[in-house]
Design a protein around this nucleic acid. Structure first.
Lengths: 242, 242
DNA sequence: CGAATCGGTGACAACCCGGTAACAACGCGA
DNA sequence: TCGCGTTGTTACCGGGTTGTCACCGATTCG
């Protein structure tokens, strides 16, 4: 819960993170911070180099930029998932801002997590930590039990973009899922339309505020009677009853 | 038909943002907008002044220009991160456009977010919001005990706009809530109608003073027998008995 | 005691806000 | 290219919220 200031004593020195990005600055930046946090690091500028590097020494976590000059990050992802030796390699995807589609694609090919640029490096490191923890916990188990967000009858598998009510999966669009996720994360607390706009739609969006209402309605409808959990706080915003 | 761009009611007044930049114009601009958004602000022109200001009163968020005349923003960042009292202070870095390196350096010393000049002030404010949210989310368990205002049997959850009497929630409108909040904050002290108009209705309102009486009545009604706590001071105003 | 002042109270109308449905625009896969 | 799902926009509606007023009782003060 507290921010990590010093080196987390739980971190082990022998965890190897491979950073793949074509921007040298960004590579350095990420590398520096990961080292600071106690990780071993390797870097690669492109997709080909990345694959070579993985072959040389299998990293424990792979940080992969989606937009690479030679082979796309998606391709890398796919081939890694295809190979038995690396099919369960934890991959953290870096995507350009607003790349909605990128995110989806990223998950489709099996990234374990994603961070959109520009990102907070601290957040990135924390996510690597989380990825590692999640993984070591599930080590040995054939199917990784994803972390679930829960609020009452609603359950979200953030990794898989699956939402369910009473265990029954509900088909949501990406936007609806993100909206619900934000509400679940803030469960019990009111979120203003402004906040929703920022967190779900993005900073520089020019969406009309009423658009939110529409999507809230769609979300409520799809959630069935569990949709009642989304409360309207008149003049303020929305809240998910906990 | 744009909505009235009112102040986000979720923002709290007591959040302090320190703006550090050597350009007075920029400082003013940012400060103005943050205030408009409901934040308290301080400013500092240089690094030394910034550190002094932080020492004087720890801000909740620090907006820091990377290029400062005296001490570089990087140095500031570093020393703040080094000190236990401020190591987890959320820092939002301002960097010159195209300053790829600057951005990198900024992150290396542990900024939580960055915005490149020239930037949209709206976005800056939104990012401050987001930073705060992220922070409060990471600060503890999901259902942290919110800040509560209390006066006798009446209790207000300021963040969530929930009022309760003897633990029983009472359904209030936004206006009623603000009115009650103002009275609770001033508990024991008389507040004139004039003051109520200013604080609850806003500065530029043209509401008739008798309107207040009506709302006080509605409030009393909704509070049930606890409504008696709102005393009328004839010829002066209202007061909440403590 | 009686008038003036003040606040309580109920009614009412205007308005604001969110729900809702229909439609348009867009992107993507077949 | 077409069709379809997703997303954004708009218009309308209904109800909650709010401002105003009239009336009345209470208090104050001459």
């Amino acid at each position: 819960m507290p921010r990590i200031a010093g080196v987390d004593p739980l971190r082990q020195k022998d965890i190897l993170v491979l950073v793949v990005d074509d921007e040298p600055d960004l590579r350095d930046l990420v590398e520096f911070n990961l080292r600071q946090a106690g990780y071993r690091t390797r870097t690669a500028a492109g997709g080909a180099a990345a694959l070579a590097e993985v072959a040389r020494e299998r990293p424990d976590v792979l940080i992969l930029d989606l937009n690479l000059p030679d082979v796309s990050g998606i391709e890398i992802c796919r081939s890694l998932r295809a190979a038995p030796a690396t099919h369960d390699l934890p991959i953290l995807m870096l995507t350009a801002r607003g790349g909605e589609v990128d995110r989806v694609v990223g998950f489709e090919v099996g990234a374990d997590d994603y961070v959109t640029k520009p990102f907070s490096v601290r957040e990135l490191v924390l996510r690597v930590d989380a990825l590692r923890r999640r993984l070591s916990r599930a080590a040995g188990a054939p199917s990784v039990a994803h972390q679930k967000l829960r609020a009452g009858r609603i359950e979200l598998d953030v990794e898989d973009f699956v939402a369910s009510v009473d265990g029954q999966p509900v088909q949501l669009t990406l936007l609806e899922f993100r909206l619900l996720k934000f509400l679940v994360e803030a469960r019990g607390r009111v979120r203003s339309r402004e906040a929703l706009l920022v967190e779900v739609w993005g900073y520089s969006t020019e969406v009309e505020t009423r658009t939110i209402d529409t999507h809230v309605k769609r979300l409520r409808d799809k959630l069935g009677d569990a949709g009642d959990a989304i409360e309207t706080v008149r003049g303020v915003g929305y809240r998910l009853r906990s």
